[in-house]
Amino acid sequence: MNKNSPHRIKNVILKEWRNTFFNLNSAAVIIFLPLLITLQALFVIYVVIMFASADSLNSTLLQNGLNLLQSSIPSLSSLSTIDQFQVLFYSQFPIYILLIPVLISIMFATFSIIEEKQYGALEPLLATPVRTWELLLGKATAGAVPALIMTWICALVFLIGVNWIGSPDILSYVLSPAWWISLLLFVPLVTILSFMLGVIASSRTKDPKSAQNMGIIIIIPVLLLIGMQVSGFIALNTFNMMIMAIIIAILNLIILKAAVYLFQRESIVVKWK
């Protein structure tokens, strides 16, 4: 750290924002895509609850998921079966919501780095006194702030939606510790992880689309987790969530190391394609 570092990092952040939010496409992706993801979740759950009977749901794999949920929230059995299913569906959202920071971070990382590569702006940038870690941190912060804010806004929208379309009193079951662990621990960790994956993917290609495709691989474990939970393979109780947080944190460290290694003057100029 140097006395000029904060100033230089701020400079990077402001440029990223100026560049991104003046671009209608990316501004739309950052603002509307997360809302779309949230509203779609609410809609699907609403349709299932409205039109499926408790019996039909009970005869599926979902029964396992529900049994597991009952064992972690004993008071759940006081609700009707269909309401219990509502809680099960709504409880997927803390995991499902991770798609939002993943998408925003990867978009930010690939958009900003690939653009710099295409224009050849990285070399003159590297000839200024900026340190590469300052650049990386500035870019990551510029991506993380909108990712976190949008995720939290969407969580709020979702809860308002649950309160509105769900059965009365259901919110208290939905707002389990898993929510808070997800919003306050998973979301920031996954934001950084996705950003660094975006950086790594961007260093390998000149085309934002293929970089995004590479980065988006991270969505697969998120979807897998939801599938495992609703079908009763694992319960997302506090203990399991904390274990997962630790695993993601370790993954973060590894990926961060790789990204910092790639993000050095020499490799940017010589090795990046």
């Binding site: 224009y119 050849g120 702006a121 990285l122 070399e123 003159p124 940038l125 006194p129 003057r265």
Partner: peptide, 21 residues
């Protein structure tokens, strides 16, 4: 390198600007 960069100016082979700015 950082001290060096305060006192040198580099014109790279391609201009390299952010075209939307």
């Amino acid at each position: 390198v950082e001290d060096l960069h305060e006192v040198i100016g580099l014109l790279t082979e391609t201009p390299g600007f952010y075209e939307s700015l």
